[in-house]
Amino acid sequence: MPPELVRDVLAEERRIAEERRIAAGEAAESLAPRPSTASGELRALEAGLDRLQTAPAEREPWWRRAARGILPPIILLVVLLAVWQAYTVIAQPRPDLYPGPLDVLASVGSAWDTGRLQLAVGTSLERGIVGFLIAAAIGTPIGLLLAESRPLQRAFGPFVSGLQVLPSVAWVPAAIIWFGLSDATVYFVILMGAVPSIVNGLVAGVRQVPPQLRRVGRVLGANRAELAALVVLPAALPGYLAGLKQGWAFSWRSLMAAEIIATGGSIGFGLGALLDQGRQLADLSAVFVAILAILFIGILVELAVFAPLERALLRRRGLLPAGGAR
């Protein structure tokens, strides 16, 4: 049934393609270019189609984007403060139990004047950042190792996930016994809190790399190292960044827990200590100052560091709607 095969007919018959092109047309192909399309005409057609099928991405000016992101929470904050102040004025609760916004503001002023606030923020922020960087330096290679080795991943995966669930405060007593009241205790607790998140983020990021991209890498001739450096890691970057972001949140939380529990010794005066000091003096306004400072720094790092990084990363990959709204 198959027609006879002519083995050696080659290139010179290619022009016959033109007849075929007319005859073989599908319905929609009647719209298609005539077979005799000159190369220049093909280019024009193609360029026209490209134009029709792509919409020029319109980018909002940065200030409008910023305004849209920053304005709503600020408005909400102002409203909340107003309600709080109104409550204090109208209901007149005991100021030592329910301080109003103005009392807290006064406390901020006095903590600032004595330099305690700056000292606490400086100490905590420095430790938080250093601890986070150490956690990233430890978590990244571990994550890579686990991501690339199935057996290791099976063995260690549950432990890493378990560590992520375990509140890192639980390590404080052990850390105090091992390291005393020193920076080592604080860093240890930060690491136990942040490393698992970073490891998990990286493993998840690598696992989500489309297999097709790896295959392309192999087809293009990448060896193992090139595949990891040029394909897998860049493709896993969003997951890795998400892990880092969560790692920072865990660092900051663990640091506060450690600072509140472990005070004195060679542990400096951080925000946790400021908080604890307020508690000992039964000065609720001072306690609120510390809480607000902790919250504020957490939000600031998220907004100033991770959010722009994440947005840039996702926009490059077309994973954000144009205009950058989130």
């Binding site: 198959p2 027609p3 005859a23």
Partner: peptide
């Protein structure tokens, strides 16, 4: 099955 589709004068349809 195999078909040559570049023979001269071939009826593509």
């Amino acid at each position: 099955g195999e078909w040559r589709t570049d023979a001269p004068g071939l009826d593509a349809q």
